[in-house]
Amino acid sequence: MPMGTRHGYSRDMRRIERLINLIAALLDTTRALTAEQIRSRIAGYDQESFEAFRRAFERDKEALRAMGIPLELSKSDPFVDQEDAYSIPKARYYLPQLDFDPDEVAALKIAAEILLGAGEHASAALLKLSIDSPSAPTPAPRIVWGANLAAEQPLLGRMYAALIERHPVTFRYHTAAGESSLRTVRPYRLLHRNGHWYVVGFDPDRSAIRAFRVSRIDAVIDVGTDDYEIPEDFDAGAHLGEAWAIGDEPHTATVRFDQTMRWWAEQNMPDCVVREAPDGALELELPVGNEDALISWAIGFGSAVEIIKPETARARLVEHIRPLLEAAP
């Protein structure tokens, strides 16, 4: 093949070459390599001073981590105090053999193509997973669709990495009202619901399960190194339902859908329907933890929905709307 000379070879290309050499050496070596060994053995680390080498090596380590390449530190010999040698463990680098059937690869392709926003990540994943499958002809276009799952938020990937590794995360979080605080969670699940991603897990400061909206996380402050276990029967949905269901002391509310909108309740909330009124209206019982959210939801249906019980929610709805009726036009 035509080989170029190194003239005009850009810095970028030289850096990629060095990184490939570094990955190759650290993957292939049976003994972890110290920084000094890396400097003297691996091509590309010909910086004049050790300080310049150290800076280049630090940048390279960061680049590997950012790409998800596992870099492990260990002791170069049992008699040194510090972990001073680097390797890339094969078991953590290589994608396990998953043996997808052809129809499974085709189905994953649909999944990757549907994404609006995080498509590049999904395509990269698909290319890795389908490495054994020869290129199949692209299936004829069928239904055109797309899904915006807001999966491209960078903090979502960090939360998921912590969940996979079972490491607790401390982060700065703000509430809808704008109050900011430091929170910690042991992530049990990532849930996409109502168009938002939530991390649901155990909050050691509150000693309780909490759900945090990922878009309200301002910054990850720390990812711990201690492990935890996820309870086997953990049901994330039980901690994160409709907005009106979330709250500290859930109680039952009764709402009535009149004849014009009862079909909506029958189609979308069949499990909540309890009785039919003589006038054709339909009554539903809902677990409610947040009456304000219930009121906001009910207003969305206009006069087709009436809150029957509890009395406090009825009064609160009236109190909520009345100032608008009284205000000067």
């Binding site: 190759a24 993957l27 790409m67 998800g68 390449i69 953590r92 680098y93 290589y94 994608l95 396990p96 189905a107 994953l108 649909i110 999944a111 990757a112 549907i114 994404l115 995080a118 498509g119 990540h121 999904a122 990269a124 994943a125 698909l126 290319l127 890795k128 997973l129 490495i131 899904a147 799952l149 999966a151 491209e152 960078p154 979502l156 990937g157 960090r158 998921y160 990495a161 996979i164 990532l190 996409h192």
Partner: peptide, 22 residues
């Protein structure tokens, strides 16, 4: 270099969630 690198968390999450949606 006989096997690809594992999926990153972001890649896995994107493909898995797209798949779960479909």
């Amino acid at each position: 270099f006989g096997s690809p690198l594992r999926l990153t968390a972001a890649e896995a999450l994107a493909l898995y969630s797209g798949g779960a949606a479909v």
